[in-house]
Design a protein around this nucleic acid. Structure first.
Lengths: 340, 340
DNA sequence: CTTGATTGCGTTACCGTTCACGCCTCGCAA
DNA sequence: TTGCGAGGCGTGAACGGTAACGCAATCAAG
């Protein structure tokens, strides 16, 4: 007569039977709800522990119409850039607040489908890493329709969504101004792909800041953010035969590639050419010469994205705004002071 | 009388009502099952599309007792090592086969809890990245009890679980033998943390191979796989004043740090000291000098892990074995040939 | 003309939670 | 005594799918 639970996971009704109460009372006990006698709660919790009970999340999801899962979508990221995002930080931050995180990589035309899919999985909120995406009105609309808060993990000036990203104009200004301050007047550029919002803004800032100082902008070539593309872009720049004493690279990867190309062509860094990168990657301090760069902590950014997203989920009237972080100049030895 | 579906997601019963059939027929149509008239199926699919229907995954999970979700657990990874794992590859591979992937980072004592938790979320399978874990018998047992296949994303010789990893002894042999072939007789080492199974095996291989050749192993210091620790380990080695002409580093990160330290102390690479790394990180070809290293493609490894895991899930009688991948020596310019 | 298999579809139960109610009891104030 | 609020708990439905089974109609074979 003993309905042995062999192989099967125990349910709240199994606990209820053993405790001599209804399944609802068990539910109350397990969820720390009020209106239950302290001893009853204790007894139920003990039985639950003894049975090795763990609630079935699917049932919980179905009943509560939510999943406590966040989803991160990487949209059309260059392989070299992918997972500058720190999945670990996001997972940890989310876990502390009771959520799990899922990651997916998609193409721009799949964003809508991804939101639909997330809705069908009762995903509570979504982070979007889409550095090429300019017009996100439709996405904001769909997210709103499905009641899924969305936070962008980059900075797009015209975004209708919540954003967390670094001040791009300020970062680019830091880089170029530093070179100007050190007396450079011929400043070349290896930009990121200009479809990237950030790359385009940096390019424009580079150009404008030089022109505002009465200086003709040096040659500029676009890379794809990979080390290799930086190497090749530099070969291209050298072919132009337009002289330059300094280079702004779109990220540290390309700066490294460019330095390699310069060294292979007998140019010394920083004596012949000064170089500034972006991001302050881990290796930046250890290459030869140690790289002067604009630090943008992705860890910090990803932590804030996660916290903000959860805030939006749990507090419906949290306002949507653009959270702008400040990058900082890290001076090492890849820039020569021409004033000295 | 029209029960308008405003705001609510349509269900199969809504579709059924519109199509004039039962919800079961709709289910059959949506799941491509047999025993349904072609026109009925078409009509139902059209209505589903028009309604923007997407199945509720929670309901599906509850009913099917599974989730089509894989979980990847990173166990106690040094920050520097974390996400050498390529989440993108795993996600993509899984997606092609109808699964999603979740990532989490945990400590060793949380592994059991993580499996329990995965079971309660009806997770179909788990990948474990636990390079420090030697005895995994208990974990294998718990996984088996909860009917969750587990694949380790590293190579542990005594593992009871399915494993996918690179041949550590062979990799270390490649590195040391290469140095011996080039005439080196004083070979130092910067190892990874010796609690790491792989680090310990490499260390032993380094030692044994040298002794087998009648050579006294050079000095050895352990780092933590970060660039910085490589730098500091080299300072330590230099302090010992034991001369060496070659260095084996536990990974490219530490090789880079070590090179930096050597250069700062006026040693030229490879003229004074030759260096071999491990992994063939993206930047390895671009630092100065380009680094000779042992290539281990994590992308390939992660793809295989994912495919193997799904195979284990879908085919209950798939056998459990250790899948050993072969690393390869990539020769660049950081090793000097003393025979020439 | 019966038999039996097959096709096409419906009915009902079930998965394991939470939620909306409602019922009893007890204590306390009117 | 009555009324009433609150504490403690139970009952039944709901969530949205899938699974098991049943049943009528059709059709080919005997």
């Amino acid at each position: 007569m003993t309905t042995s639970l062999q192989g099967k996971r125990p349910t709240i009704r199994d606990i209820a039977k053993l405790a001599g109460v209804s399944h609802q009372t068990v539910s109350r006990a397990l969820n720390n709800q009020a209106r239950i006698a302290p001893e009853t709660r204790k007894r139920i919790l003990r039985i639950a522990r003894d049975l090795g009970y763990h609630p079935n999340r699917a049932a919980k999801m179905l009943s509560m119409k939510r999943s406590f899962v966040l989803e991160v979508n990487l949209v059309n990221i260059e392989p070299a850039t992918a997972f500058s995002l720190s999945a670990k930080i996001m997972s940890d931050t989310a876990k502390d607040l009771g959520y799990s995180v899922m990651f997916a990589e998609i193409t721009p035309d799949e964003i809508n489908k991804a939101i639909e899919s997330a809705a069908s999985r009762l995903v509570d909120g979504m982070a979007l890493y889409a550095p090429r995406l300019n017009d996100d009105r439709e996405i904001a609309e769909i997210g709103h329709r499905h009641n899924i808060p969305i936070v962008r993990r980059d900075y797009a000036p015209d975004s209708k969504l919540a954003c967390v990203g670094y001040d791009i104009v300020y970062g680019a200004t830091l880089a170029v101004q530093h070179l100007l301050d050190q007396g450079h007047r011929h400043v070349a550029e290896i930009s990121g792909p200009l479809e990237y919002t950030a790359a385009a803004i940096r390019h424009n800032t580079w150009q404008k800041l030089l022109e505002d100082n009465g200086i003709e902008p040096g040659p500029s070539v676009a890379g794809d953010y990979s080390i290799k593309s930086g190497y090749e872009a530099m070969l291209e720049l050298l072919k132009h035969k337009i002289p330059f004493t300094a280079l702004v690279a779109g990220n540290d990867h390309m700066a490294l590639g460019a330095i390699r190309a310069l060294q292979e062509h007998g140019r010394s860094i920083p004596d012949d050419v000064s170089v500034v990168g972006f991001d302050d990657k881990q290796y930046a301090a250890y290459i030869d010469p140690p790289l002067t760069t604009i630090r943008q902590s992705f860890d910090r950014q990803d932590k804030i994205v996660t916290e903000y997203l959860i805030e939006l989920i749990e507090n419906t009237d949290t306002e949507i705004y653009h959270r702008v972080l400040q990058p900082e100049l890290v001076v090492r030895n890849s820039v020569r002071n021409l004033n000295a």
